[in-house]
Amino acid sequence: MNVFRLAGDVSHLVAIIILLLKIWRSRSCAGISGKSQLLFALVFTTRYLDLFTVYISAYNTIMKVVFLALSYATVYLIYMRFRNTYDSENDSFRVEFLLVPVIGLSFLEHYAFTPMEVLWTFSIFLEAVAIMPQLFMITKTGEAESITTHYLFFLGLYRALYIANWVWRYHTEGFFDQIAVVSGVVQTIFYCDFFYLYVTKVVQGRSKMSLP
């Protein structure tokens, strides 16, 4: 464990909690892409299958349980509790365009052709594109509430911090996880455009971020 990975996990946790609290307190999921949240729940489900088979550390186990619980709770709020506020018309991204290539790629590129490893690889590739429906929805509505942009900021920051973690681990322990690094770089690049808007628009204190 190093400070970059810890900061990354905290940033990830903060993002998930920001979104969950926003939906719960406003009792609405307007402007939130349910599809992205479903994809994130799928990412955690396929990645944390080793939760009960491999014990790595208390931190590892606790964080996996927390991420699974919060992501399913978010999906529950969107599709069940506050489903009448779900904006399905604007959440129209065709997720099959993400799932098919990700499934295909995880069968082509993996460390071992075992169910656990192929599913882990699937979760890594899926996480890189899971935010697409949300970013698409924001471009479609042309705006995002500032709290949603804070969610996206911390979500994008988490994988950027993981990249720093991989650089650190490469230089200190020679560790290099090619699949996670390549996918993590792609994932972070998808946020760059948003990061620019976030810094130039939202940080100046505007309530909504309207895209050009």
Partner: peptide, 10 residues
């Protein structure tokens, strides 16, 4: 070992 090192990340 390699797998362990990989899967200790969230």
């Amino acid at each position: 070992k390699e797998r362990e090192a990989r899967h200790d990340e969230l």
